[in-house]
Nucleic acid binder design. Structure first.
Lengths: 228, 228
DNA sequence: GATCATCTTGACCATTTGGTCAAGAACTAA
DNA sequence: TTAGTTCTTGACCAAATGGTCAAGATGATC
């Protein structure tokens, strides 16, 4: 799947109204600022209401710009949505590291859980955007899910299986294990109103995240027969 | 939170166009059949697109009825949505059993996981409807989350803590444990396109569900220091 | 069969939606 | 300063939206 154009130029500028004849050029400060505002606003709106339920007017209001100004920069609702998904995927792809059978299972699994929880905390709206898109049937993400994400999962699963063969962890199903870690870590972004309602909090703080992360690391590693 | 009116009468009939002067009366066979069609269709549409993104026209098409006929039965989009949420909550409340410190932790946790997975399999759209509503900030569910669901979680957590004190399980955080079980079990409904895309399946079968359930039971119980 | 209630459903309505368009202001480079 | 580019933004458009309305068909009861 296409990664967003290289850092420095605008993520949308090559596809909307700045068709400079010199090819890809540096976006102006005004354009960069406004596009960033639009992307942030759009992420929140689409994360909350999905593609169909999110309106360009709501995005415009959240960005503090007139609707036609938003459309001037991004071209269309669809283009904006695709740009957002690509941004999200780029962020995730940066985390799709490779692991080896020579690595230590405890370290790898713990790092995996910790980095996912850190992402949840840093980018909750990205997680919600993904959740909304998948709830909607993932129409824009099929290639990604069936392509590089799947390859990554399968490669990681193979390493988990080899660890199990060496007796370094229990022979759990590695794919369900990966889903368990994803669901457990994303839950705190995706279902935040539930978490806050039930725990009586207004927000989760750094210390809460620390406790949750520690809890997940301990339980999942022990549950896998690692360092129990 | 209000539970749906008693079995036998229509879940919507008391609030839309059948204002019989004799009070609550048995709905006709036509009404029952059409209301059920509408509820099923609406559940799918709202689960996929959320409240804002789901349209009455789409629901009407999915139900095979004209839009104004749908509105004849349900009154408004909002009433329909509320009725759906109430139906979902009633289904969930039937599962909010009580446990005691004298129960066996292994049995209780395993039953909890198994029943949640069975619910995921039997009512995936209900799970997705809940997810969409929570992603949207849970505007219609705050009382439920902060009320009886919270009470249930707290009561269950207290029992978990007492088990830990008796050395029957590790002293894990009981609330995070409940969230872990919810997120892990609902994942297979809510993120089904992801699961299918990554595993290369067109659907999850009974055997898949069995394996996943067994995996979750084993890992989570072992991770809690129960019967490891 | 007559009467009343329920059901069906297209026409209609005000508002919202994703755009398109173009005038004028602001910015940039020579 | 001039010319060209970018940015701003209200007016406008066709289609979609959640309804409302009422005529006629169907169902139920006496």
């Amino acid at each position: 799947m296409t990664v967003i154009s290289e850092v420095g130029s605008s993520p949308i500028s090559s596809s909307a109204s700045s068709r400079s004849s010199a090819g890809e050029s540096e976006a102006s400060a005004i354009r960069q600022r406004n596009e960033e505002r639009i992307l942030e606003a759009a992420e929140a709106v689409f994360a909350q209401h999905g593609y169909r339920g999110g309106s360009v007017q709501a995005i415009a209001e959240a960005a503090g710009l007139p609707k036609s100004n938003v459309l001037y920069y991004v071209g269309s609702k669809r283009r904006l949505y695709v740009a957002l998904l690509e941004r999200m995927m780029a962020r995730w792809n940066a985390m799709l590291d490779d692991i080896s059978v020579d690595d230590d299972p405890a370290e790898i699994l713990e790092a995996f859980i910790r980095s996912k929880m850190a992402l949840t905390r840093a980018h909750p709206q990205g997680s919600r955007l993904f959740a909304a898109e998948v709830l909607g049937g993932a129409p824009f993400l099929q290639d990604y899910l069936r392509g590089e994400l799947r390859d990554w999962v399968q490669a990681r699963a193979r390493v988990f299986e080899q660890w199990a063969e060496r007796g370094l962890m229990d022979p759990v199903d590695p794919v369900w294990l990966i889903f368990l870690i994803w669901s457990a870590t994303q839950h705190y972004a995706d279902f935040e109103p539930q978490v806050l309602g039930i725990t009586g909090r207004d927000a989760l703080g750094e210390q809460d995240y620390q406790h949750i992360t520690d809890f997940l690391c301990r339980l999942i590693l022990k549950g896998c027969g690692i360092r129990g």
